[in-house]
Design a binder for these strands. Structure first.
Lengths: 192, 192
DNA sequence: CGCCCAAGTCAACAGCTGTTGGCTAATCTC
DNA sequence: GAGATTAGCCAACAGCTGTTGACTTGGGCG
C-alpha cells in the first residue's frame, strides 16, 4: 500500500488525540474512559497506552493548547476590550473548532492536575499579554489578567458548558457589545 | 439514653448530607464515592442508599440550595451592582459556609443532571430578581440575568475552583470595587 | 414483659476501570 | 530474502464502583 509505517503511526496517534479531545470536552476527565476513546478511534485500548503512557498522559496531550493571543500593544487603546472578546469568540467558535478549552473547563473543576494546567496556561499566556497592553503598572497586571479570566471563563462556562439559554442565544455582536467594555475596564482602568 | 430513635435518624441523615456536600464540592460528582461519604459520616455505605435512594438522589439533596437573593427593588438604583456582588460574597464566604454552589460548579461541568439543576436555579431564582430590579423591559431581563451569571459564576470558578492566585488574593472590598460596576451595567444599562 | 418496627451492619453481586504482557502480522533495514 | 522492528489485537489482572438483600440490634409502645 501507499502507507508507510511511520505515516500510519502518526495517523492513528492523531485519531486517538481527536477522539480524546471530543470525549474529554463532552464528559470531563473522570467519565472519559480509555475504552471509549479507543472505540471512537477504532483501535484497541492498549494502543492508547502505547502512544500516551497513561490516561493522564493522554489528557495532558489533549488539553495542551495555545490561546494564540495577538499582540495587544498594536491595538488602539480604546478598542482593547472589544478586540480581546472578539479574539476569544473566534478562537472558540471559529473553524476548525478547538475543543481544548472545553476539555480543560470540563475537567479542571474536578481534577487538580487539570486545574494546575489551567493556572499555568493563564499565567504563561494571558498575564504577559495583559501586562503589555495595560498601563505600565506591574503589580496590578496579574490582577487585571485574573479579572479578565473571571469574565471570559465565566462566559465560556455559561455558554458552552452549562448552556444557559440567554447566554447561548447571544450572537457574536451582542457578546462583544456587552463584554467589550467590561474587559476594557479591567485592562485599562486605574486601580484607584 | 437521651437519644430517641427519630432524633438519631435525623442526626445521621444530616451527617451524611454534610459529608456528601464536602465530598461533592471537593471532588465533583464522579469522583465522589458513596463509600467515602459513608466513611466520613461514620456509618455503613448501605445507609446512604436507605436514606437517599441512590447516588443521584444524594447529589440532588446535596446540591439543592437557595441563593437567598434579597429584594433588589428596595436597593437604591445606583448601588445595585455593589449590593449583588456583596451578597454573593457573603453567601459564599460567610458563616456558616454553604458548599452547595461549589458542589454544583464542580459537578455541572461533567454531569448533565447537575447542569440542568444549575439552569433551573438561575431561571427560578436569579432571573426574577433581576427582572424586578432593572428597567421594566421583559425581553432583556433574561439576557441581563445571563450576563450577571457569566460574571458571578466566572468569579466563583476562578476564585474557589481553579484557585487562580490573583483572583484568590483579592479581598472583599477589591472584588466589590472591580465587579460592582460591571454588574451594575448588566442590570441597568439600556440594551441599545 | 413481649411484640414490632426501624436503625444499622455485613457480605456479596455484577459491572466497569486503568493497565499489562504475550501474541500475530506487516513493514523496514541490511 | 533474513532478521529486526513495530503497529495492532486479544485476554486477563486486580481493584474499585453503585447497589442489593439477609441479618442483628435496640428503642417504642401496648
Amino acid at each position: 500500500m501507499t502507507n508507510g509505517k511511520r505515516e500510519r503511526s502518526q495517523r492513528t496517534r492523531a485519531a486517538i488525540l481527536q477522539a480524546a479531545r471530543e470525549r474529554f470536552a463532552a464528559d470531563g476527565f473522570e467519565r472519559t474512559t480509555i475504552r471509549a476513546v479507543a472505540a471512537d478511534a477504532e483501535i484497541d485500548p492498549s494502543m492508547v497506552m502505547r502512544y500516551f503512557g497513561s490516561k493522564r498522559g493522554l489528557f495532558a496531550a489533549a488539553a495542551d493548547f495555545d490561546l494564540a493571543l495577538p499582540d495587544l500593544s498594536r491595538v488602539p487603546s480604546d478598542e482593547l476590550g472589544a478586540a480581546v472578546v472578539d479574539h476569544f469568540l473566534t478562537r472558540w467558535e471559529g473553524e476548525p473548532t478547538d475543543d481544548s478549552l472545553r476539555v480543560l473547563l470540563a475537567s479542571a473543576a474536578t481534577n487538580a492536575a487539570a486545574a494546575a494546567q489551567m493556572q499555568e496556561i493563564f499565567r504563561a499566556q494571558l498575564a504577559p499579554v495583559v501586562a503589555a497592553a495595560g498601563p505600565h503598572d506591574p503589580p496590578t497586571a496579574a490582577t487585571r489578567a485574573g479579572l479578565v479570566a473571571t469574565q471570559m471563563l465565566g462566559l465560556a462556562l455559561c455558554r458552552y458548558v452549562l448552556r444557559l439559554s440567554p447566554v447561548v442565544d447571544l450572537d457574536r455582536d451582542a457578546v462583544v457589545h456587552w463584554l467589550g467594555p467590561v474587559i476594557q475596564r479591567y485592562l485599562t482602568e486605574p486601580s484607584g
